[in-house]
């Protein structure tokens, strides 16, 4: 066996096992444990000196109590549902906002495109926290948006947007917009423009040519973009904490508070395990979609 190859595989493999897989094992274990004194150690503890009976006892003491607790308290169920809802609505809005931008980029003259690409990517390199924070000053009661709307006379009294779900939608759409634009742009850019012309020559109106030709061909990009927005939005913490209000329930924020405020680690771990289970569905679908694209591309 080639020693160099073994070393090359071993180092990153061991790193990921130690700092990725084992920590998840610990989360799973603690989610099944009870709090001893609200701080570690958790019961049960593995007592290897007792031999086999110690191991059996250890596994018998693990239970689903924390999960039962999650089903009994309505808060968690509501938080899961409302996370899915908020992530989904934001995803749809991001698609509606992002598609025309990606389309405009694909239609733009060739020599503009590198600059346009850079303009889409630039916010992505800028701090996420700062981009969310920027909206706090804009959306508040006496913020920029309200001043502007009052000034042009659309409204008479300032709107309450900050600390509502609306602010959360705006925050998610704003921060994840590049993730939607880029895959759609990539799909549109590859498209052969003469197909559109052919459709129009054959008597399609521009609108129906778009819906019959362009949109179906950009579907892989749309699907990829939707997943890239939905998946991270589901576990979002910063946006609901800064822009959302007390009634904004998102599971990432609940987990955060369970951990940092209530210090209930077993329940926080159980919340994490269930969040992961919910995420597995879109992630698997996404990876299947990506693989299909890769095979189609070959």
């Amino acid at each position: 066996m080639d020693l160099r190859r073994t070393f090359l595989i071993f180092v990153p493999f061991a790193w990921l096992l130690l700092l990725f897989l084992i920590p998840f094992g610990i989360v799973l274990k603690i989610s099944l444990s009870d709090i001893a004194l609200s701080i570690p150690p958790y019961t049960p503890q593995l007592d290897l000196s007792a031999g086999w009976s110690g191991i059996v006892e250890y596994f018998q003491a693990l239970d689903l109590e924390n999960y039962v607790f999650l089903t009994q308290d309505n808060l968690y169920f509501l938080a899961y549902m409302s996370s899915v809802q908020i992530a989904f609505i934001s995803m749809v809005i991001t698609l509606i906002v992002g598609y025309p931008i990606a389309y405009g980029m694909a239609k733009a003259p060739d020599h503009w495109r590198p600059t346009l690409m850079m303009l889409v990517i630039l916010p992505f390199w800028t701090s996420f926290l700062i981009r969310v924070y920027a909206w706090m000053g804009i959306l508040s009661q006496e913020g920029f948006l309200n001043q502007f709307l009052l000034w042009i006379g659309i409204i008479d009294t300032p709107l309450t947007i900050l600390n509502t779900n609306w602010a959360v939608y705006i925050g998610i759409v704003y921060t994840y917009l590049p993730f939607m634009i880029l895959p759609i742009y990539a799909a549109l850019e590859k498209m052969d423009g003469s197909l559109m012309e052919a459709a129009e020559d054959l008597g399609c109106s521009q609108t129906s040519a778009f819906w019959l030709v362009t949109f179906p061909l950009s579907r892989p990009g749309v699907i990829a973009g939707c997943f890239l927005v939905f998946i991270p939005a589901l576990g979002e913490v910063v946006i609901p904490s800064l822009l959302g209000g007390s009634q904004t329930l998102m599971i990432g924020k609940v987990l955060w508070e369970e951990f940092f405020s209530n210090r209930d680690w077993p329940v926080a771990s159980a919340v994490a395990v269930i969040l992961l289970l919910i995420l597995v569905i879109p992630i698997v679908l996404f990876q299947r979609n990506e693989q299909k694209q890769r095979e189609a591309g070959r």
């Binding site: 906002v97 025309p100 389309y103 239609k107 346009l116 704003y174 917009l177 590859k190």
Partner: peptide, 22 residues
Amino acid sequence: MNGGRFSWFNATSLTLGFAFLY
């Protein structure tokens, strides 16, 4: 994507989009 015109619609959506981002 080549072909097709860069229409006023495209220009508007790019302008509004980048205004929103920046």
